[in-house]
Design a protein around this nucleic acid. Structure first.
Lengths: 338, 338
DNA sequence: ACACAATTTGCAAACGCTTACAATGACTAA
DNA sequence: TTAGTCATTGTAAGCGTTTGCAAATTGTGT
């Protein structure tokens, strides 16, 4: 692979007979350049096929027009839809995206953030549940704004974009209770995560309480986020004699649904399910999954938009944004005819 | 956000009382440093919390330890699994990944490649079907190796990693024919794409020919790659009186399956389906989808590994790698009992 | 024609690091 | 000793831009 000699700003400057500064100005759309010389510079750029070297530019200007995204797993539908929202508005504002998968491993999350920092990203969007002290500290140490998307820190201090998980889970629970269930299971991730402990569980309990049903922690199930985990936890749910479940992840919900059906329960007649992420998985099965409707793309998009403001030191009125959620009533719940 | 004063290599050099060069050497693991001074430098680095500035490093060394990945859509399971394979081995070799979604739009693909080039990435992995002249040209003009993952250029010239699509589709077609179908539909993407025209179609026709069945182009269907497209094309397939289909995408296959079942056909008894990507979608439904088994993660991983070699100017014996595929016989085909 | 204000340009110093190449010092063998 | 070798360290020239400031050019009103 022979080195293709790429033209530098110097080449175009000398070709036109102006200084570096002038070329730099026209490249950056600076106003103070006479129309005629601008014309000539542009021609030279065209002729030489000059492309500004972003690395040099980054060093000189201390801006890389690159943001970092750290997420658990691109392969997870929920997060990849957030990522898409992020990427689209990042592009809109001419930022590139440096992507890192962490599998929610705190060590890798910390490394990722530090690595992004040393790459001098202008900002970071962080997704992941495990926001422990150490990560919070390394985030605090980073000289670039960070916003959480679809994630929450314990203190609720970092800029973030989410839905109102408490309300959403409460409503889901209530809906199931209204359908005559008194043993509604809650399936979430590990209780060490703020989002589960302080939001989903709280919403669930609020729903119970509103209906005067005593909280029974044998109806609480923690899994990790995939289909086979759903299959596994379903067995326990079955054993616990629950007749309905609020589930935090679509793949897990699918696992539960399939297990139930494989074991002679029909869904929704014998067992009702409400899932939470409303990804493509929810509408691709029969029955389709009833779900809390999350504006996933928008969560990503809004988070990224917020980040652009932070990077420009613009004022952001609301640092903890809650986007509205909906309910998508489909086939895993018994829905009253309108 | 007050500027956190970050330490530079100069700071640690002067603290220890050595030159920049020496610090640079220890940071880069260069051997020629006395153990004792190395110790001192390391201590100073620790004390100052020094992190090398990757941008400056990139400018000086002309290596960014960053690669670019251009893909149609992170949200597409097939590609995101490739991306995961890429990312994991990229990390393994200490490369970061700059990710771009293109939605297969040639204009955006071209822009993406150029943009990555100006960011001075050390290499690029390209995914997408629409490898037309223009993109090929811009790829050729880039001063960094490019490898295709799960994608093919018309001429088969670029380094790439794939499966043998011709053989896979041929086998799938034959399997269906063996199950007594004489009207097997082929559902792919647009015929302007090399992978459809020169591989899938060819494999399909070969399968037909082997069974002495005349090719009927009314059994050829082109769709785009999503669930609703499957729903739509299913109607035409139904009308064309096909009784089985080889489908190139899992979401599309799901659309077809659901349409058929919603219209009184049972799968696989009345209509058999073989899909091609074997993503999570395939095992999450009832019945589960029979699929060509693609080592998606490995395609990404191998492509990335190949790229690392290219970036190091190592010799690569095989520039067009074909990984082995399998058949995952599941519920959408009638499988002989062993 | 002249002083003065804009408007355009150029100069040159960063930005933080890598890397030939040169220099120093210590050690070895004769 | 003394030249000759290594091992270790330092010097300084880039890498390709941006940008504050000064200089040059042009235009304006009288």
């Amino acid at each position: 692979m022979q080195k293709k000699q790429t033209a530098t700003i110097y080449d175009v400057a000398s070709r036109v007979g102006v200084s570096l500064a002038t070329v730099s100005r026209v490249v950056n759309g600076n106003s103070n350049v006479r129309e005629s010389t601008k014309r000539k510079v542009l021609d030279a750029i065209e002729a030489l096929g000059y492309h500004p070297n972003a690395v040099a530019r980054g060093l000189a200007s201390k801006k890389t027009t690159t943001i970092g995204v750290v997420m658990p797993d691109v392969t997870d539908m929920y997060y990849s839809e957030l990522a898409r929202g992020i990427d689209d508005v990042a592009n809109m504002y001419h930022y590139d995206v440096l992507l890192t998968n962490t599998d929610e491993d705190p060590v890798r999350e910390t490394m990722a953030v530090n690595n992004l920092a040393s790459k001098q990203v202008d900002g970071i969007i962080f997704m992941g549940n495990e926001l422990d002290r150490e990560i919070l500290n390394t985030i605090a140490a980073v000289d670039a704004p960070v916003v959480l998307a679809g994630s929450l820190d314990e203190e609720g201090i970092l800029p973030s974009v989410n839905i109102d998980y408490v309300a959403a889970v409460k409503e889901a629970t209530e809906l199931l209770i209204r359908n005559k269930h008194d043993r509604v299971a809650l399936v979430t991730g590990p209780m060490v995560h703020a989002i589960n402990k302080h939001h989903r569980l709280v919403g669930y309990q609020a729903g119970l309480e509103a209906a005067n049903i005593a909280f029974d922690d044998s109806l609480l199930f923690a899994t990790h986020q995939d289909y086979s985990a759903g299959l596994q936890v379903a067995e326990k749910i079955f054993a616990a004699q629950a007749t309905a479940a609020v589930v935090y992840d679509d793949e897990v919900a699918l696992g539960i649904m399939n297990y139930m059906r494989d074991h002679g329960k029909s869904v929704p007649e014998d067992f009702e399910i409400i899932t939470s992420n409303d990804t493509k998985f929810a509408i691709v099965t029969r029955p389709e999954l009833t779900s809390i409707g999350q504006p996933k793309y928008d969560i990503g998009a809004v988070a990224m938009r917020m980040l652009t403001k932070l990077m420009n030191n613009e004022v952001v009125d609301d640092m903890q944004v809650q986007l509205p959620h909906t309910f998508e009533k489909r086939g895993t719940t018994i829905n009253p005819q309108p």
